[in-house]
Amino acid sequence: MMAKPYFRTVYDVPREEYLAPGHGLCAGCTAGTIVKLLLKVAGPNTIVVNATGCVEVSTTPFPYTSWKVPWIHVAFENTAAVASGIESALKALKAKGMIDPAKRINIIALAGDGGTYDIGFQALSGMLERGHKVMYVLYDNEAYMNTGIQRSGGTPEYAWTTTTPVGKILKGKVQQKKPIAEIVAAHRIPYVATANPGYFADMMNKFKKGLEVEGPSFVHVLQPCTTGWKFDPRYGIVLARLATETALWINWQQEEGQFSVTVSVPRRKHVKHYFELQGRFSHLTEEDIEKIQKEVDLEVDRINKLVGRTVIGPLVE
């Protein structure tokens, strides 16, 4: 049986804010929601390493910073390596008595899908293999948003981006989304989870768990992007939830090798509800949508078999 979760209701969420307002994320950018809640979990004894990307540029236009915890940006592809260096250094400095050995400092690597699936993948894999005690948080908005919505390994099949345009022959991205969290899980690190801000308590519990384990942890968070996905900014959280309600995004975790689905979906919605709200999928035909629905059905079967019971229910609406 699972231990009682730490965050159950909004009243368990700390009041203190470590992300200051005045940042330049788009109105309705759910990355703001994610980072804000992440920092509430982590608290002040934290060092954040941030990859180049929307969060990085929007929160630190010199001379302003929205960060109330120590924060560093080095480059796009090396967040995990920088975090490795920080972790090793703190270990060494503690061993030499240069900093208090009793002090626990959270180290969080924060990167987008481009910085994780693609260009940052080698550094990430290296960090995981070496076993640094770092929590890596991937905020996945499914494209290179900072450079103007280009496809990444995290962009889903069919999605329009500026480099997977909808043309006469090609209609959006041809390839499927890379199963990054599963690839990370294959490194057999202590903790891997997927989360989304529509289920804030689940997400925050995962952050908490990720910071607690002895060794690397990885939390993959879906981050609806109003600008790149082309939806009304008010729907960011609605979409995050719809992704799970349609089982396009399943919230799971793997703790010491034990796989579980943390947000069960008794009555599943049709994927069309998710696509409907987003301009990046507006070119999909009914056939396309049905094809995707079939893929999702298969995936749901696979997950239910993996868990050994029906955690994701049948399609009802």
């Binding site: 470590y18 200051a20 005045g22 010199f62 302003y64 910073t65 929205s66």
Partner: peptide, 19 residues
């Protein structure tokens, strides 16, 4: 090196006029 020494000073940037 462009260090920012005042944590959370983006509070001085008012984004209310985006609305």
């Amino acid at each position: 090196g462009g260090a920012i020494l005042e944590p959370g000073n983006s509070e001085r940037r008012y984004t209310g006029d985006w609305r």
